[in-house]
Nucleic acid binder design. Structure first.
Length: 614
DNA sequence: CCCCCTATCA
């Protein structure tokens, strides 16, 4: 090829200098077209001009003040659909600047979302910042842009990237608002990364973010969810140290914490102390305290507080009524639940999906399956979607009525019904198979759930552990406990109760006692079931009655009320050992406590007399 | 920044 010819070819590929001038001209032509088109969408046919576009022209057009921001967006959207003219990062920043000048912050967020989720555009914040034009507003724009970018990263759970922005602004004297920082804290909290929350908290302090009660509340809630009193107290201590007072949300969170841990007096105390702290209660606070009393089974007090709430001019909403209806259902008072539903409707509040589930569960627990199924029909008529709660509630109701086959059939078809089964669905299935003694099938479901990416939780393991221990396979039960701990799941009181029972039945009372003793070390509360199981364990073994009695009295000291099963076990143990007087004394005590002895108690007492006779 | 529902154990 001659050099001349080569030059000609080159010229075709790279048109020479005049391009710069024609860039200007092309840009102006496009501007005119855009202005003329007004709010009409751009059509690919109407824009032959666009074929001559290049990134430089795009930028010229976008920065032209004659082109209004909405036209910029219009052009942008058009180019994005056009593979050969995808706007580059610089064009994005120019558009962001135009939107910023027009105070169109919502639009800015959309554009930033495009940048951070697009593999070709995503880049370090410094690169974006370097594209910002110097100018009187440059610094302010950069500040807003970084704040927004940080927030968009946080909302997309791109934690590392968000922190990258945060560090960058720290080095450059730009400020990230506390509100934006909270978005990241919320993302971290949602993934259960409380340690990361604190690490970021320290960064906030270092970068001079003024930390208010809002940040503390956000971190506090991380501990509320897991009922971590230790962690919650630590947050409160820090607030005190920093001189940050509670606000109404802090009080609400504390009421929730105590309420969910059956510490109703403490919840009440927080509620009562609000005026002293200068905090006005609001509807949230009333809903929370009402929920506490509902959960504690004190409907009388809950309804009284509803009256007080009304009197103070707070209008109860779906949450308030949801809590009350739940309380009534849990107390088995379906008539009261019905009245509350009517009251709610008369106030124009829609009965939502949650309330339907609550009512369905209430009827299920009463064994009124037909009523529960009727509610399902009502939901359908009202066009309320069925979800995973709907199915698990109905399935567990069927299971409680021993309608296992129907429960299984429902759970196995959840997916066909357009709902993704969650851990609860699998756990109910596993529990059914365990109770039926079909460990093979239980294991199959367990593997199936793991394969489908549903993570087994503590309850799932509890069901399996109970299944194996009741089927005489304590080795497997112990292994499962280890497996759950290896997976980062914490055995709870029920796990230990189940294992203690298993060891006792297996005749390994020493093993059971070992588990019993390690509970306080594990921060697990020993409840009436724990003690009763252990007492029954001792009862089966000759010469251990005194050990059992020791625990029986320890219960009283720890304010754990003996129930029918506890008395039955203790009376049976004493009778077997021939200590009939003591057995009868407990029998009287039991009746005085308002408990109704069942046939097993009588058999024990009679059996005990028998031993004495001979 | 905060509130309602579902599953497991003697």
């Amino acid at each position: 090829m001659s050099s001349r010819k080569a030059f000609k070819t080159l010229k075709k590929v790279f048109p020479a200098e005049p391009t710069f001038i024609s860039n200007q001209e092309t840009a102006e032509k496009i501007v005119k077209t855009l202005i003329k088109s007004g709010i009409q969408p751009l059509k690919s046919t109407s824009s032959s001009l666009l074929s001559s576009l290049n990134p430089h022209i795009t930028n010229l057009v976008l920065s032209n003040p004659l082109v209004l921001p909405h036209s910029c967006v219009k052009l942008f959207n058009f180019l994005q659909k056009n593979p050969s003219h995808k706007p580059n990062l610089k064009s994005h920043v120019t558009l962001l600047c135009r939107l910023y000048q027009a105070r169109k912050f919502a639009q800015m967020k959309i554009v930033l979302n495009v940048i951070v989720t697009n593999d070709n555009l995503r880049c370090p914040v410094s690169e974006i910042a370097s594209l910002i034009e110097e100018g009187p507003n440059g610094m302010k724009f950069a500040g807003t842009l970084c704040d927004m970018l940080f927030r968009v990263y946080a909302e997309n759970k791109m934690v590392e990237e968000a922190i990258g922005v945060f560090d960058y602004v720290g080095r450059n004297g730009i400020e990230i608002r506390e509100r934006s920082c909270i978005v990241l804290l919320l993302a971290l909290r949602k993934c259960g990364r409380v340690d990361s929350c604190w690490r970021f908290f320290d960064r906030m302090v270092k970068n001079g973010v003024r930390i208010t009660v809002l940040t503390y509340n956000t971190i506090l809630k991380a501990y509320i969810g897991r009922k971590d009193f230790e962690g919650a107290s630590e947050v409160l201590r820090l607030m005190e140290k920093d001189g940050v007072g509670y606000n109404v949300v802090t009080s609400t969170l504390l009421i929730d914490l105590f309420g969910s841990s059956e510490r109703i007096e403490d919840a009440q105390k927080v509620f009562e102390e609000m005026p002293e702290r200068g905090i006005e209660p609001d509807l949230y606070v009333y809903t929370s305290i009402i929920n506490c009393y509902c959960k504690a089974g004190n409907m009388e007090r809950a309804l009284f507080l509803l009256g007080e709430c009304n009197q103070r001019g707070f209008v109860p909403n779906e949450h308030t009524y949801g809590a009350l209806i739940n309380g009534a259902c849990k107390a088995g008072q379906m008539e009261m639940a019905d009245i509350l539903v009517n009251e709610m409707q008369s106030k124009g509040i829609d009965v939502n999906q949650v309330v339907f589930h609550t009512l369905m569960d209430g009827y299920c627990k009463k064994g009124m399956m037909d009523e529960a199924l009727k509610l399902q029909d009502v939901m359908e008529k009202k066009g309320i979607q069925f979800d995973v709660f709907t199915y698990s509630t109905i399935a567990s109701g069927l299971y409680k009525l021993n309608r296992n086959e129907e429960a299984k059939a429902l759970l196995f078809t959840v997916e066909e019904r357009g709902v993704t089964p969650n851990a609860v669905c699998f756990t109910i299935l596993i529990d059914i198979f365990c109770k039926e003694g079909n460990l093979e099938e239980a294991k199959r479901v367990f593997n199936d759930m793991k394969r489908k990416g549903e993570r087994p939780n503590t309850v799932t393991y509890n069901a399996l552990i109970d299944g194996y221990s009741k089927n005489g396979n304590m080795n497997k039960a112990r292994k499962l406990k280890k497996e759950m701990e290896d997976k980062g799941l914490t055995p709870n009181t029920r796990t230990l109760n189940t294992l203690i029972h298993g060891e006792c039945v297996d005749g390994k009372v020493d093993e059971a006692l070992k588990l019993f003793r390690e509970m306080p070390r594990r921060n697990l509360t020993r409840n009436v079931v724990t003690y009763t199981t252990m007492i029954s364990g001792f009862e089966c073994i000759d010469g251990m009655v005194d050990e059992a009695l020791k625990l029986f009295h320890e219960m009283s000291r720890r304010d754990i009320t003996h129930n029918v099963v506890t008395y039955t076990a203790m009376i049976s143990g004493l009778s077997k050992d021939g200590r009939t007087d003591e057995a009868f004394k407990l029998y009287d005590e039991m009746k005085n406590a308002g408990l109704t002895p069942d046939s097993r108690v009588y058999r024990s007492l009679v059996g005990g007399l028998h031993i004495v006779k001979y």
